[in-house]
Structure formats: C-alpha cells, structure tokens
Simulated assay, not measured.
Amino acid sequence: MSIKTFSLATALIVATAQSALAHATLEQESVTQNATEKLTVRIGHGCDGAPTLRVRVRIPEGMIAVKPMPKAGWTLETVVEPYATSYDYYGNTLTEGVQEIVWSGELDDAHYDEFVFRTHVTEIAEADQVLYVPVVQECADAAERWIETPGVGQSSDDLEMPAPGVMVQPAAAN
C-alpha cells in the first residue's frame, strides 16, 4: 500500500470514528423547506457512565410550529420565546413559538433512546445548507453540550462536540 493510500485510509477511519463519537445525533439526514418534518434526536449513552437525566433541544431559526412528542416516564417542558421574524403559517401570523424542548427523566448509560418532535421548516432555513439543532444532555454531575457548529472552512468532523444537523432541501416547485 502506498503512503498516499495509507494516509487516505487513515483519514477515512479517523473521520468515521469521529462521527461515531457524536453521541447526540439526528436520525433524519435532510428536511425540506416549507414542509412539516419529524426529527428524532438519538442519545447513545450517558455522561462518563452516569445516566442521562435531561435532554434539551434548542430549536434553530427557520423551524416553527414545533410540537414535541411526550415520552412515557419523562416530564416534558417547552420554552416559548419570540421568533426573530414573524412567519405566515397556514394563514396565521406566528410571532413566537417553542424555542427549546426539555425532556426530564432517566436514561441509564447502558441504554439508548430517542426524543422526537415535529416542526415546520421555513424558507429562512437556507436550501443546500446544514441546519444545526443544538442538544444538551444533562447528567447528575456533568453535561454533554452538543452545540458546536462549524465555522468557515470547517466541517462537523473538526469539532469536539458537534451539534446534530440536517441538510435543507429546496422546497418543491408548485
């Protein structure tokens, strides 16, 4: 094997390993502008062996009319705040909505779970760009903050605690 091939293979293994270390992920890979979508946040384990007690999801600008799915055995809270701009949503003007979802309960470190919400993706979410959904996973004595987003010239693979993201597809032509 040549050095170039070996280096490429090593880089691919490292990138794959980094992606595998992302412990808060989204099941969906893409969403569509002007469409209502279901997003599923996946939590793969606790914080250094401790159980997860709370999962917080911050809703990015461009997602409106958010409705979280309750989970049996978990308490569900939402934080409603003003939007940066008003939105027309089926003939209604929305000026505020759910900006954060908080599920509180207990997820043992040895287990995996999913946290689901529905949202309408607006045209503010740029087509052909990744829309990041920050997640904070809280445990008794620690928190995993999956909130980093890449800067110019970076990718999520360059980050230690990347926020989960979905690619925004352009709205279907009418």
Rank of each mutant, 00 (worst) to 15 (best):
S7T: 05
A9I: 05
T10L: 15
L12E: 12
I13E: 07
V14R: 08
A15M: 12
T16I: 05
Q18Y: 03
A22M: 10
H23V: 05
A24Q: 13
L26M: 07
E27S: 09
S30E: 09
V31R: 01
Q33H: 02
L39D: 07
L39W: 04
V41P: 02
I43A: 11
G44W: 03
G46H: 07
G46K: 04
G49H: 05
A50D: 14
P51E: 04
P51M: 04
T52F: 02
R54F: 00
V57I: 15
V57Y: 05
E61M: 06
G62I: 04
M63L: 15
K67E: 13
P68G: 12
K71Y: 00
T78R: 02
V79L: 14
A84T: 09
D88E: 14
Y89G: 07
G91L: 08
N92H: 08
N92A: 14
N92D: 15
G97R: 09
E100S: 12
I101N: 10
W103C: 09
S104V: 09
S104W: 02
D109Y: 10
A110T: 14
H111S: 15
V116I: 14
F117D: 06
R118H: 14
H120P: 01
H120A: 11
V121S: 10
A125M: 10
A127W: 03
A127V: 03
L131S: 06
V133K: 01
Q137P: 00
A140D: 12
A140F: 03
E148K: 06
P150E: 03
G151H: 08
G151S: 11
V152G: 07
Q154V: 01
Q154R: 04
D157Y: 05
D158C: 08
A163Y: 01
V168K: 10
V168A: 10
A173C: 00
